[in-house]
Amino acid sequence: MEITYRGDRLELKGKALNHMDRFVLSFVRLLEGYVDYVVVGGYVAVLFGRSRGTEDVDVIIRRLEHDEFLILHDRLRRGGYYFLNPGGPDGLYRMLAEGLRVRVALEGTVIPNVELKFASSELDEYSLRHRVAVVLDDEHVYVPPIELQIAYKLYLGGDKDVEDAVYLWELFKENLDARLLRRFMDVLGVRGEPYGIG
């Protein structure tokens, strides 16, 4: 793997894009220039080569005002997407404002889909503030700092989550900020040692 990781930019050149990558890149292109976003969850490990299937992509955006969300809703609809959750834009906004997620897919499909949510915790805000641009030749997508992603996966604790955390650790361990990783693990009350992390 050829990766260049400097500050808030991670270059991953020459990746043969798969269907999931193309789906994510098309979606985030509609967010670009309108609202800051960060892609989190299992797709981050998949982006870096993890060999597992995933059908949904978690995306965090800052909390929008109602009228801002209506514009985003319109932008996505015009872009060929629809919301799987029932209810019009007002109902969808209420769900998001209550901290729930809504799912978005391309018209006529259900899989793959995006689980969209507003930032709802300090960790979400941190992910947005310190997001890392993963540059794939002439495209890019923003992800959280890898240290936070590893700690969060350990926090979720499912088998697949732990596997994702171990995968990211193995891939990036020479490049990570050990103090930052420790700090996130402490804050989330998780330990990496049982899995050889940290």
Partner: peptide, 27 residues
């Protein structure tokens, strides 16, 4: 861990082409 070590050891074109086949078939 074994798979991650392999991904690190080969060019991006190699692991990503194999991964694309798996992802397409899953989807």
């Amino acid at each position: 861990r074994f798979y991650a070590r392999w991904v690190k050891s080969v060019p991006n074109e190699v692991w990503s082409k194999q991964q694309a086949v798996l992802i397409e078939s899953f989807l």
